[in-house]
Amino acid sequence: MTALVEVRNLVKTYGEGEAETRVLKGLDLDLETGELAALLGPSGSGKSTLLTILGTLMRPTSGSHRMLGEDLTTASDRDLTEFRNRHIGFVFQFHHLLPDFTALENVIFPAAVEAGRETREARERGRELLVRVGLEHRMDYLATKLSGGQKQRVAIARALMNQPELVLADEPTGNLDRESAMQVMDLIGEINGREKTTFLISTHDEKIAEICRRQICVVDGRAEMGRERA
């Protein structure tokens, strides 16, 4: 397997002087292509900070962060935005859809913003993704008219729109009932198995973590490898 993400000695501190808080304290992590990994750890352990850095939304204080062989710690803001658009998908706990847009428009947003317009190809792929997440009957519904589980499935479809190598999911089932949560995880597992898209899922839910083949625990700002399923 090829290392998709390589993180070495990652440090992230907030504040300065006496108010300085070190959240990540020299974290090392490798993610391989096609992995389905759970990110575990108590609140405040640095899981969200790690996801934010891996998603290029925040720069580390020090250390190295590489993905697809590119050094992302020294890249410009513009380059990081382009890289994020092409190679990384996000699924958030509160789905964060654009409320004034339909399900389909939300899904094709990453492709449209890259191309500068909604291409026919993007619309076709958007429809295909919505069919795959079981929302073919909700394509033209405004995001605000969808249920919580439906919104999260739209968010997953959006994360996959540009066929990213890595999808970062921050508590994707945290706001859903058990049944919807399992449906979402089944969907993630199916996509991961079929497309070899790497998923890193931050969760507090042991049952969700058990579905993942690999468990990574962040404890006291460092990553500890948990059990790995065959």
Binding site: L57, T81, N85, F90, L98, P110, V113
Partner: peptide
């Protein structure tokens, strides 16, 4: 603000 943040996270540049 939240929508702008999401757009930025999805790859929309500051210029956009």
């Amino acid at each position: 603000r939240p929508e702008i943040g999401i757009m930025r996270a999805m790859g929309a540049s500051r210029g956009f």
